[in-house]
Simulated assay, not measured.
Amino acid sequence: MSGEAKLDILSRIYRAGAKPPSGRAHPPAAAAHPHAELVEQFAAYTAEYRARVHGCTEAELPGTIVSLLAGERAILPPGLPQMWVQSGLHTLDSGQSHHELSAFGAVVTGCAVAIAETGTVVLDHGAGQGRRALTLIPDHHICVVCESQVVGSLPQGVAQLGAAVRAGRPLTMISGPSATSDIELSRVEGVHGPRRLDIVLLLSTGQLAFKLLLALEKGS
C-alpha cells in the first residue's frame, strides 16, 4: 500500500471520529535513530526523487531563496515569515485565479511535516503553506523544511496532522517534482504540478556538518 493510500485511510478515520479498538490512542513509537540521521535520510531520499536539496542556517535563508529564484517572479502564501523572502520580485496571494497564478514562475512555502522514510514533504495548507492551487500551478516550488519538522515514519507524520484533518484542510504529499509516465513508460514532468522542486532544509548550527555534507555531494 502506498504512503498516499495509508494517509487517506487514516484521514478518513480522523474525520469519522473513530478510535482504535482499545478505545485509547497509542502514540507512534519514537525514532530509534538520532534526529540528525533522520534529517540526512530525508535529504537523501528526497534527492532520489529528483528534488534539489539545500541546507542553510536561518541567517542564510533569505540569500538562499533569492539565489534559487534567480529573478523569477514568485507568489507567496499568507503567513510566510517575512524574513524568508526579502526580494522585491514577489506577490502575496490574494485569491488570484488559476490563469493569474500561471503568470508566476515560482512559489515559496513552508510545510507541515517531512517524512524521512519516504523523502516526502506534507503540506496541510495552514499558515505559510497556501491553498493547493498555489503549490500546483507555478512551475517552480521552493519548500522550506525546518529540521525540527522531520520525523522518521509515516505514522509519526500522521500524528502531527490530526488538527489539520479535523479542521477539514486538505493534505498534499510531495515526493519530488511532479512526474508521470505514458503507456511506454516515458517520464513526463510537470503534468500535475511543478516541474522543479527545491527543498531548503533550515538547519541549526548543530547541523552544520550535515550542511557541509550536502555541499560536498553537490560538488562531486
Rank of each mutant, 00 (worst) to 15 (best):
S2H: 13
R132I: 03
A51T: 02
A215L: 06
L92N: 12
H125Q: 01
V39T: 08
M173F: 06
G190W: 12
L154H: 03
P62K: 11
G152I: 03
E4M: 11
I174Y: 07
V53Y: 06
G168I: 06
S2C: 10
Y14M: 13
G206R: 13
Q82D: 15
I13H: 14
A163M: 07
Q129Y: 01
T120P: 02
P27K: 14
T180G: 12
R52N: 10
I115G: 11
R12C: 10
G95N: 01
I199N: 00
V121C: 05
L101C: 00
G219V: 05
R24D: 08
I174D: 09
S94K: 13
A103N: 12
V165N: 07
P78H: 11
P28I: 08
L214E: 12
T109Y: 00
T118N: 06
G55L: 05
A70W: 04
D198Y: 01
G63C: 04
I183D: 12
L38A: 13
S67L: 02
V66C: 11
M1G: 10
A18C: 08
H140G: 05
L69H: 04
G128C: 11
D8H: 11
R166L: 12
A103M: 03
H35A: 07
H98R: 14
L136P: 00
K6A: 14
Q82F: 07
I137G: 05
K19V: 13
S97W: 05
L134Q: 03
E48S: 13
G206C: 09
E217D: 15
S220T: 10
K211S: 14
D8Y: 12
A163I: 03
R132Q: 05
S204K: 01
G63R: 02
A209N: 13
A32P: 06
T180W: 02
G176H: 05
V66F: 07
Q96L: 03
T64C: 06
L80Y: 00
P138H: 03
S175D: 06
R15T: 07
Q156T: 07
T109R: 02
E184M: 07
D139R: 15
L80T: 02
G79I: 08
V113E: 03
G128V: 10
Q96T: 03
S11Q: 11
L123V: 01
I183L: 15
L161D: 04
E4C: 09
M1Y: 09
C146Q: 11
S153Q: 09
G126I: 00
G95M: 10
I137D: 06
V85D: 07
A32S: 14
P62G: 09
A127I: 08
G88Q: 12
R166N: 01
A36G: 10
T180A: 14
G168V: 06
P170Q: 01
V144W: 08
G3V: 14
